[in-house]
Design a protein around this nucleic acid. Sequence first.
DNA 1: TATAATGTTTGAAC
DNA 2: AGTTCAAACATTAT
Length: 244
Amino acid sequence: MPEGPSIVILKDAVKMFTGQKIIAVTGNSKIDQQRLLNNKIIAFKSWGKHFLICFKDFTVRIHFLLFGSYLVNEKKDRPVRLGLTFKTGEINFYACAIRIIEEDINAVYDWSADVMNDEWDEKKAITKLKKLPGLMVCDALLTQEIFAGVGNIIKNEVLYRICVHPESKTGKLPAAKMNALVKQARVYSFEFLEWKKNYELKKHWLAHTKKTCHRCELPLIKKITGVKKRRSFYCEHCQLLYDK
DNA sequence: TATAATGTTTGAAC
DNA sequence: AGTTCAAACATTAT
């Protein structure tokens, strides 16, 4: 479920409830559910993988982690974590982490770090990366403070696309590769969004879970990389290692 | 059927 | 006190 583009799809799927009052709340979430009752939703927003339901005085933050899911006007045979009922329909959330944010979300979130946001700022991302020269690029792409919304699929596809080895150090990247990294983090995420909408995401994977490099026909390497210990799929021949 | 996987937080251990 | 690490959570396709 996760990765930023999927959250953008969710925002779109529930937009008809914007401005509506919640007339019933259900679920096993430990948040104070009563606070939502009879309260009007001001807006649905997102920051990276965070889905935000905004009310006048607080915000509900939903994170889907690895297995979270949601259904609009449907239920599934699983415990509902949070269910919101409106006059015209309902949203049900499953297996997700939910919190209430009391502070002004504009003070909490740096919108320019979200690759899906109009305020996404390449230059700021590069500045952040330059402060972490020893960080492997596989870890850098998964760092939400820099690339909010990027997950393991996008990581692998971006690095394959720009021909950079996942264990390269950000401080050793040539300027052109640094620029490509930051550029493609957003570009690929929007392609992901379109493919996902059309239920054809996997069809477009070139590296993630793949066995062979389509450029040189050599086998792709599958390896747990970086301090984040996530699996990387890469071509040792086509993706250059910049670490010295 | 067992396993692995689009992820993050927490608290113990160093 | 700061960093590292495993555990916990929860679902589903292969």
